[in-house]
Amino acid sequence: MAAEPLCRHCKAKDIITAAVTPDHIIPLFKGGLAEDGNIQCLCKSCHDIKTAKDLGTFPHRQQAEIGADGWRIG
Results as ranks from 00 to 15, higher is better:
C46A: 00
L42M: 06
T51M: 12
K11M: 01
A18L: 10
L28G: 07
C46L: 03
A34G: 13
I39C: 06
T51C: 07
P59K: 15
I16C: 13
I25R: 02
T51E: 05
S45M: 15
D48A: 09
R61I: 14
K30N: 09
F29K: 09
D36S: 12
I39F: 07
I73F: 07
L28V: 13
Q63P: 07
D23W: 06
D36M: 14
Q63G: 08
Q40K: 08
H60L: 14
L28W: 10
A34C: 12
A68T: 11
R61V: 15
K44C: 12
D14G: 06
L55C: 14
L6S: 00
H47Y: 04
A18I: 08
M1N: 02
T51W: 11
E35I: 12
Q63Y: 15
G31C: 01
P22Y: 01
I15A: 00
D54C: 02
F58P: 12
I25P: 02
I26N: 00
I39E: 03
D36V: 14
F58A: 13
H24T: 08
H9S: 05
C7H: 01
A2I: 02
K53I: 12
K13T: 06
E65F: 15
D23H: 13
G67N: 14
I49P: 03
I66V: 13
G70I: 04
R72G: 04
L33C: 13
K30D: 06
S45P: 11
A64D: 13
T51Q: 06
H47P: 08
G74T: 02
D69W: 10
G70S: 03
